[in-house]
Write a protein that binds this DNA or RNA. Structure first.
Lengths: 129, 129
DNA sequence: ATGAGGGTTCCAGTGACGGGAAGGTCAAGG
DNA sequence: CCTTGACCTTCCCGTCACTGGAACCCTCAT
């Protein structure tokens, strides 16, 4: 399989696939003409990576998870720890965003949104609360 | 005021303040020795920027908001539009993160987290659901 | 004179790619 | 045989909002 077919199959852009090779996540073979040749195992890894990235894992987490995936002697505790730490990050981000949303929607509700200059949003940002 | 005092007053790192000057958000004066000299209006702008950034507005949004802030003839509708668009982005992000959190916590709950290799997290990422 | 503690500029790096240039390869059609 | 168009390759720059660090200047106290 060439990179275009793999891109279509995995849903990952060709650029991303090349990037993943660059940083050593996958190691496809090469044909005589220099084209990358992807075996099933490469495609499988890419699907793994795509799903892990979709769950928000960083590339370094993905590297770790992939290594655990390939290691038949892994302890599931190691996987779980990585996942739990990531979950903690996600929850922290959600909390931050919820705080922003709360403040913002409050301010938006208070703003007339007409052609007059008075604006509680700017008033708040300006510190005159 | 020199940059160090401004940094302390606003809570913004000196590096960030220099960056904001670089990209034209503020235009502090210069002393004879080349040091930046910040007037109250500069400090005020920086506080504005700090608060807007804390609400998650992009730098370009901040530029827009600052321009509106300075424009006595603005329409609050313009401010509100910027804020609403940002709120939409935030809500989209929250939705994404909530979806991730749901899947992740599900998988984490299903994982024994012991020294055995069996792991529903990896099984899911591997596509064998 | 020296040292500490400001300040300055400029360059490189972050994460995870995306855009685009310049060029090699391949299969099909005229 | 030649061309065309769709692939593929590498390489470098840009993103966003900074952060770190090097190399250097200024000021004041000892």
């Amino acid at each position: 399989m060439n990179i275009g077919d793999v891109a279509e199959n995995t849903g990952l852009p060709a650029k991303t696939i090349r990037y993943y090779e660059d940083i050593g996540l996958i190691k496809p073979m090469r044909d005589g003409n220099g084209y990358r040749r992807f075996r099933d195992q490469d495609v499988h890894k890419l699907n793994f990576l795509g799903r892990a990235r979709a769950l928000g894992f960083t590339i370094e987490d993905c590297r770790t998870l992939l290594a655990l995936y390939e290691d038949e002697t892994r302890a599931s505790a190691d996987v779980k720890r990585v996942a739990r730490e990531h979950l903690t990050q996600i929850e922290a981000k959600i909390a931050d965003l919820n705080a922003m949303r709360g403040t913002l929607s409050h301010l938006i509700d208070a703003c007339a949104g007409d052609d007059r200059p008075d604006c509680p949003i700017l008033k708040d940002l300006g510190g005159k609360s």
